[in-house]
Design a protein around this nucleic acid. Structure first.
Length: 262
DNA sequence: TGGAATGTTCGGCT
DNA sequence: AAGCCGAACATTCC
């Protein structure tokens, strides 16, 4: 479910509910979602006060009065402030007012506590909506395919398969184009395309392509605006020719062969 | 039945 | 060193 716009939507929908709350008790049931000792994690969280909830890349960063709780939704993770625990619920937090559930069928997500800055967050590249054009251009100087670079979280933090494809389409850039060979003008076009796509997606509450929902269980609507993702064989919105799907960096990659040039 | 799915990490190869 | 590829993680859906 979760790339930058979806995680941003979750954070916005959950922040007010969680800020100032105290964690009375928590329970974890997956050795994948919560690696290490789950009872020790629960002990660490017991009695902690939630100071703030923010997004960094695709991570949900929950600052506590002691340490930081970091949540990554992986592929199918959900954070819910209502509902009941089910077969795929791997985290249950009882708060002094309300509750919080972590639901994740594939268990690719992670819930981790750290004393200081979470190591995985420390490795992230800049935020796509905060980086300057100059820094963006400088970071493009890599001899790799642009699609692969956009998926690399140390390049920019938060783009995933949907928004990489949609941004490249909006910029008219072929996913196999070599990053370092993009002209300054095309680099700026990509920079603006990323900003535009992400901003628009956040405004629509993200993309609900299978079952993504925010913390209140509401769907997003940006999937209605997808121009290429999930549209293999459909006519391009610009030229009418069929959208093609190829494999790049082991990920399905959707693009218009006519509108997107190397 | 096999393959693919919004993600990340790691080992091995060139 | 940099970049690429395949595999691994676990489950559902078509």
């Amino acid at each position: 479910m979760p790339e930058l716009p979806e995680v941003e939507t979750v954070v916005r929908s959950v922040a007010a509910h969680l800020a100032g709350r105290r964690i009375l008790e928590s329970r974890f049931t997956s050795k994948f979602v919560t690696p290490g000792s789950r009872t020790r994690l629960a002990q660490r969280l017991a009695g902690r006060r939630i100071e703030s909830v923010k997004r960094r890349g695709k991570f949900i960063v929950i600052a506590l009065d002691q340490g930081t709780l970091t949540v990554h939704l992986g592929m199918t993770g959900k954070l819910l402030t209502q509902g009941e625990a089910g077969e795929h619920t791997h985290g249950v937090f009882t708060l002094d007012d309300g509750m919080l559930l972590y639901h994740d069928p594939r268990q690719f997500g992670r819930i981790e506590w750290s004393a200081g800055e979470p190591p995985r967050v420390a490795r992230l590249g800049p935020e796509p909506l905060e980086i300057s054009l100059e820094d963006f251009r400088a970071r493009l100087k890599r001899k790799t395919r642009i699609k692969a670079l956009l998926l690399n979280q140390t390049f920019l933090a938060g783009l995933g398969n949907i928004y990489a494809d949609e941004s490249l389409f909006a910029a008219g850039i072929h996913p196999l184009a070599i990053a370092a060979r993009l002209s300054p003008a095309r680099a700026e076009k990509l920079y603006q395309a990323i900003r535009g796509v992400l901003t628009h997606a956040i405004r629509l509450g993200g993309s609900s392509i299978s079952d993504y929902v925010n913390a209140q269980g509401e769907r997003g609507w940006f999937q209605m605006e997808h121009k290429v993702y999930g549209r293999e064989g459909e006519p391009c919105a610009t030229c009418g020719r069929p959208i093609r799907k190829i494999l790049v960096a082991q990920r399905g990659t959707h693009y218009c062969p006519h509108c997107q040039k190397k």
